[in-house]
């Protein structure tokens, strides 16, 4: 009888401790997941690439911008005055893709890349995509 009471007390204390630990760790884990989702989303990436391609034209001389994503690979298409980005990782089940407008005209297409280089030299803007 005494043994059962002690076991029950230990069980209750253990569950309470686990819940307290989860209470502190779960929000941090969720914040990290949210951060990963946001910084790797095609919407953010297409917006970044469109902005960088446009602002590269504001450089009077030579400029090279390297944009890397360490988490995922993407299919990136610069077409006319827009850039389209979508996930190309087989592990990703998301079909999310996004198109952002840009002020410069570039036509290039890359598949399964996580590193984009935007280079402006002699007035011309060139983009290249790699898997790193």
């Amino acid at each position: 009888m005494k043994g059962t009471i002690i076991t029950d007390a230990i069980s209750t204390i253990a569950v309470i401790i686990i819940f307290i630990v989860l209470l502190f760790t779960v929000p941090k884990i969720l914040a990290e997941i949210k951060d990963i989702i946001v910084s790797n989303s095609p919407k953010v990436m297409s917006r970044d690439l469109a902005g960088l391609a446009t602002i590269s034209a504001a450089s009077p001389y030579t400029i090279e911008i390297n944009y890397t994503n360490k988490e995922f690979s993407y299919d990136v298409e610069f077409s006319g005055r827009a850039v389209n980005v979508k996930y190309s990782d087989p592990v990703s089940t998301s079909s999310e893709e996004s198109t952002s407008p840009m002020a410069v005209e570039i036509s290039q297409q890359f598949q399964g890349v996580n590193h984009i280089t935007i280079k402006r030299a002699s007035g011309n803007i060139e983009v290249a995509g790699y898997e790193k």
Binding site: I37, S41, K43, V44, R47, S94, S95, E96
Partner: peptide, 8 residues
């Protein structure tokens, strides 16, 4: 499926 909404 998560979708990101960029407020700007």
């Amino acid at each position: 499926e998560f979708h990101t909404i960029v407020n700007e």
